[in-house]
Structure formats: structure tokens, C-alpha cells
Amino acid sequence: MRNILTIALKELRSYFVSPMAYVAIGFFVFIYGYFFVVSLNFMVRVSMQAGMMGGPQAINVNEYMVRPLLGNMAVVMLFLLPALTGRSYAEEKRSGTIELLLSSPLTGPQIILGKYLGALALFTLMLGVTFVHVGVLFLYGEPELGPILSGYLGLWLMGGAFISVGLLISSMTKNQTVAVVGAFGTALMLWIVSWIGDPSSGSTTTEVLAYLSILDHFDDFSKGVIDTKHLAYYLSFITFGLFLTARSVDSERWRG
């Protein structure tokens, strides 16, 4: 456990001594703020329209504001997280520092978990900073806390899944750019994989593809539902990603 922590802290530190962490957190929070305003305007417009139609003006903040906001942030994560994990293994392999880790008395899983937790910690921090916006929401409105928290949990799990994909791709190459593009491509594919199926047909293939889609599992979280089915999906996704990373790192010992 201490070994994992040592690696995790080293990873986290490497994000903060380079502009990486600041750029990532900065842009994430900035874009969050932008979407916050966009969603707010949207909600106000809907609310006013409802008022003009003679309906009730008080619109559900969770449904009309938080849910689209978190949905948009999921897309931002799709772009941002592969960039975070791209250097993880690729850079160590390029500069040869991986040999320091490989020749030290650390086990493969310790190194992988350390790297994973390091990236996850930075992502958690990114997500944590956006609670400032949520605070503003509570200051001026009356949103429900539950769905917000479950939405964040969904985002966090989805981010964890992206990071495990990123780590896997990064462990396969020495080139950071390849790692970033590869991880983005893979994550995007997992995102849109269900689109090819025909929902009306109800065939097994469609169902399997829908189950694989990283996005479909997020939906319930943002509605305020924490379903074990989706928890299991993300957790097994992450575990499988890390397992493949371990295999990939190990295979490197055979090839090089």
C-alpha cells in the first residue's frame, strides 16, 4: 500500500510541477463555468416560456440545469482525460525512467495502481473545484442535493473508466501523442458504440452494444438513480482496463 502511495504521489507531483495540472484544472473549471451559464440561461428561458403559457414558473433546477450541465461535462472529460494519462507510461518508456521502476522491488500491480490513483487524484481535484459552482446554485436556488451527488458520482466513475483506458493505451507506446490520440479514439468509440444498433429491433447485438456504451450507463446517475448495474459496469470496466495494462506492461518485458 505504501508503495502504491509513493508512486501515486510521484505521479501527482509530476502533474503539478509541469503546467499540465494547471492547464487541465483551469480549462475544466472554465468550461464548466461556461456551460453553467449556458444551462442557466436555458433554464431561465424555459421557465419564462412556461410562465407565459400560464404554467408553473418554478422549474426543476436538477432536471433543466444540473443534468444537461453534467452531461456536457462528460463530453469535456472525453477530450481532457486522455491528455492527462497520455504521458503516464509513454514518457517513462521514452526517457528510460521506467527501468528505475521495473528494477525496483515494486510489483507490476503496485506501479499500475499508483499511476492510476495519481491520475484519479488529479481528476478528483478537477471535479472537486467545480463544487464552487454547485455552491452558487444552492445560494440562489433550491436544487436537490441527491441527484447532484449521484451525478457527480457518475462523472467520477466515468472519468475513472477513461483514465484506465488512457493508462492502457499509454502503456502500449513510447509516443505521448499516439497515447493521447489512441486513448481518445478508444474512449470515443466506447462512447458511441451503441449508435450502430437499432433500438427498435430489440436484438441481442443492440442490447450488448448498448450495455458496452460508456455513456448509457451515465444517464441514470444524472437522473439521481444509483443503480448497482451501472456501478458494476464502471467498476468492472476500470478493473479490466487495469488488468489489461498489467498484461501490456508485462508483455513489454518479453518484447523489449
Binding site: 525512467t97 528505475l100 528494477s103
Partner: peptide, 18 residues
């Protein structure tokens, strides 16, 4: 792990974190 605990290794390129 036991073997590595007792080994010090200097690779061809020193594995330094810049």
C-alpha cells in the same frame, strides 16, 4: 521482488526524472 531488493541497477541512460 526479493532479487530486485538486493540489486542496484544503473541503465545505459541514467533513469532520472528531469
Amino acid at each position: 521482488v526479493e532479487a530486485k531488493r538486493r540489486t542496484g541497477y544503473l541503465p545505459e541512460t541514467p533513469p532520472l526524472y528531469p
